[in-house]
Design a protein around this nucleic acid. Structure first.
Lengths: 225, 225
DNA sequence: GCAAAAGTGTTAAAACTACACCCATGG
DNA sequence: CCATGGGTGTAGTTTTAACACTTTTGC
């Protein structure tokens, strides 16, 4: 089939930006890269890039995530598409934003020549961000908070085995509120989303804790809180 | 500032498709247009079109909605962006889909020369759809069902004044389940989202009903069901 | 007077909230 | 032996779910 040459008409560049979250040092953090090119030399931004002509937009997001973290198979969800005319000073760029959740353990941050650096930032203490990335990150944080409450996606933030204390702490950090330990445990058990590994976490100056793992590692709608 | 000519690099066409819902004849219905151009001559599709170079993507959706329905100021929300490489046989087109809710009353469907016709279809009895519009509509229906339960967006489906029976019916039709009349009324009143107009609906062969109106006509998160 | 939708409370079950003590370990 | 987080049950409150009859109108 002959393809119409849409270049004669309206066109735009499609980019994708990925807001990558982890929980680290008792804080919800976002992965940002430091930009080199003007006019954002001093700014940080969520990792992003152009979608290739023969690449699905979803695949571009996966690729960008992989390039920065070396990870595949983590939670990655389309967030929102940012399409204001002037959002990019270089031209018309529409960005399909995604957000990803990764466990902190064993991530090697990979910088490239394109950027000056890669770094985690707590969402409560972000540096000035390029483009409309402040809005994008804020949007992602809201979505994450909402989804934590009614889905099982935390599984993507925790290591393979974890204690109930760690699970609860993860919720508390992201939701910014304290949960009752007994009620929390009751709820989690009643949902049947985790199971014992049979192992325990030793080596800490306190009572050893049972280690659990998620029964399913696929996104599901579940009323957690 | 000199703008980079991104045409030298990757590019795509940005389109927007709008899934327009109403409740009509006791059914949730979608507005579809009948296509003329190949290879979709016999197919129906959600109204859509290209985003102009100097047009925000949001504004494009508003424009498309207005062109088909003559309506502004109704509920319109970005749904999802569909970006598979081969979703459009004519070339690389990324579509930012939206969904809209309109009251049925007083809408004049406006066809244009571009199409063979415009028509409402029940979501349970859709004709074959062009492109990936089957997926887009399904996606929109899911989103609508979910949002009805935790927001006040029904306001955009009903006329200025309505009875509690009509409100309940609207929920029942879309959610495809029956609600208990007394519990429903109790809940709605306790939320304080509607108020009496003081008028009543007469002329029907049954007891006249109080007419209500929404206190706020802005989207809000509210646990309705 | 009949058909059809409007309007109106109570009760039982389930879910949620608040809350305090003992346990096992490393240092 | 002390500090630290792990682990456990109950009672009061709130929320939800189920349920039936009387009212008002047009025909």
């Amino acid at each position: 089939m002959k393809k119409t040459d849409y270049r004669k008409y309206e066109f735009a560049v499609i980019a994708s930006d990925v807001v990558i979250f982890t929980v680290l040092e008792e804080k919800l953090q976002v992965l940002l890269i430091k930009m080199k090119k003007k006019p954002f030399e001093k700014c940080w931004a969520a990792p992003g890039g152009l979608v290739k002509p023969d690449e699905n937009v979803d695949d571009a997001a996966k690729r960008l995530l992989f390039e920065k973290t070396g990870l595949k198979d983590v939670y990655l969800e389309q967030l929102y598409t940012f399409g204001k005319v002037d959002r990019d000073p270089f031209g018309r760029v529409v960005s399909v934003a995604y957000f990803a959740l990764i466990p902190h353990s064993g991530i090697m941050l990979q910088t490239t020549e394109e950027y000056e650096g890669v770094q985690w930032f707590p969402v409560d203490a972000l540096p000035p961000l390029a483009y409309d990335h402040k809005e994008i990150v804020a949007n992602a944080v809201n979505r994450l908070r909402a989804k934590l409450e009614y889905t099982n996606i935390v599984y993507s933030l925790l290591p393979e085995a974890f204690t109930l204390g760690e699970l609860q702490k993860t919720y508390e950090i992201i939701l910014k509120r304290n949960l009752d330990k007994r009620n929390f445990r009751k709820k989690i058990f009643s949902l049947g989303i985790i199971k014992k590994t049979g192992k325990i976490r030793k080596g800490l100056p306190n009572r050893p804790a049972e280690l659990y793992t998620f029964v399913h590692k696929k996104p599901r709608v579940v009323e957690i809180l």
